[in-house]
Amino acid sequence: MEHPAIEARGLSRSYGRVKAISNLGLTIAPGEKVVLIGPNGSGKTTLIKLLSTLIRPTSGTLKLFGKDTASHGAQLRRRVGVLLHEPLLYNRLTALENLQFYSKMFNVPNEDRRIWELAEEMEIGDLLKTRVDSLSHGQRKRVSILRALLHDPPILLLDEPDAGLDQTAVQGLVKLVSRNGRTVVMSTHNLESGLSMAQRVIVLKKGKVIMDVDREVLDGANLDLGYEALVTG
């Protein structure tokens, strides 16, 4: 029996007395493409950070591939690629130097070949020799997506990848990113772009899952209304 890629039980995380994620249960099968939708402050970023082991749950358990993140954090991080709001790149180094650094940290074999191959595919080969502080926001985003893919992680977590990129760019990237049966969890507050990329839609509100459905079940127009009602009401 194959373990689910992500399995959360009673997951909670509070900041001081604010509960960002509260008693959340979630199972994601390997290869699933999931989109997290919710208004600001609904806990999307916190959930992504929990899944990436950046922060620890206040209570509850979180397993990736059947292994508890509390005890296997370092080992599991090898199998997770993460894109956060910030690019996680050093301003004073070139994009290539940044990528080489992370490749070494992740022990990526043939790092240079891997970096150039990915860069070709993402069409950012000409950016690699540029220092990060002279890249535009969108260019940094692409480099950070490449960064997240370096070690070919079976789980990919994307926190609002569409922020700062245009719609077609995002769709192209997500298609690229989702290959090889990768499990992808992506947060967005753009309902449309979320729907176009995922098989499964999870709506978060106040740290709880208030809706979890397959995309096929939904009719775009209905969802729009329903979502509106759920989020505001």
């Binding site: 996680l88 790149l89 050093y90 940290m105 960064r147």
Partner: peptide, 18 residues
């Protein structure tokens, strides 16, 4: 503070080591 710009500390914390 070098690690603070662009969230690089998070980048280090995401690497597969303690």
């Amino acid at each position: 503070s070098t690690e603070q710009e662009n969230g690089c500390l998070d980048g280090l914390m995401l690497c597969p080591h303690g």
